[in-house]
Write a protein that binds this DNA or RNA. Structure first.
Lengths: 140, 140
DNA sequence: TTATTTCATATTGACATACTAGGAAAAAGG
DNA sequence: CCTTTTTCCTAGTATGTCAATATGAAATAA
């Protein structure tokens, strides 16, 4: 019941890009240094975010990555779901789940559903913009 | 980010014992049949619950298991924590966590903390007694 | 043409998950 | 005492996931 490094790093990566979005796109090399994560691992993580259309890449020298939307438009949940998969607490709640025959009588399912709602309510409440604000409070 | 079968089965196991608590203790053989889980796997799961003092075992013929407390005294979270471990969403929040040097500047930690609170609020709100009530509504 | 960047795919080692297997220990009933 | 039924304990095993590293190709700015 843990969020993987991929998910946690993805959030820090997106925040790092958002915080350093100037005329120049953000290079993974720089993010890697600032966040203390290997470039190679970041490459893997960001590929999912590129595929999702969350960031756009510019190749070659002076290349890098840039956000496609405003920081207010990325919730934490959106980012996690791209790299972690669906983020539901039990597979019974997955869209592709074959519904099991005991589902109607399954009282534990009520718990999992409510847990799912509670998790979403947190993860979809905050956006990158919120994280940016907090970050600026700490390191002005 | 999934609850394992062990956690889910543990909850069904405890509910099954609670629902069939009569003069006779509940045998795993019967639970296994009702819940469609192997006796061997249930044995493993229940050992953690015995160790925690949640159920008491009676060996030999006419043996089985019995709850140590009233169903109202077991929250879902308590049961899950025994078999799944601490149930916090990131290891930074574990009691034994070596606190990382970036903790003070870590804005993502705020998210994880709030996620943890939200999860607890659901998992510690419901007890076995609630589950029993729901079950009885469905199959009177 | 070279250096710098992203892009794509494969490989690795460690660990976790979801079980099954085999037998020992306890105890009730005859 | 003996047999059967139950829990108890340890080990094994197949599969998968995690957390990376490694290798090299493709694009592009200067």
């Amino acid at each position: 019941m843990k969020i993987s490094t991929k998910g946690r790093y993805a959030l820090r990566l997106m925040l790092d890009i958002a915080m350093h979005d100037t005329i120049e796109p953000v290079r993974l090399k720089d993010t890697a240094e600032r966040q203390n994560i290997s470039v190679k691992y970041l490459e893997q993580i960001i590929s999912a975010l590129v595929r999702a259309g969350y960031v756009k890449s510019i190749r070659g020298p002076q290349g890098g990555y840039r956000l496609m939307k405003k920081p207010t438009e990325y919730t934490v949940g959106m980012i996690l779901r791209q790299v972690e998969g669906n983020m539901v607490p039990v597979s019974c709640l997955e869209d592709e789940a074959v519904d099991c025959e005991r589902q109607e009588q399954c009282v534990t399912l009520r718990i999992w559903k409510e847990l799912d709602v509670a998790m979403r309510s947190v993860l979809d409440k905050y956006t990158l913009a919120d994280l940016m604000g907090w970050q600026q409070e700490i390191t002005p």
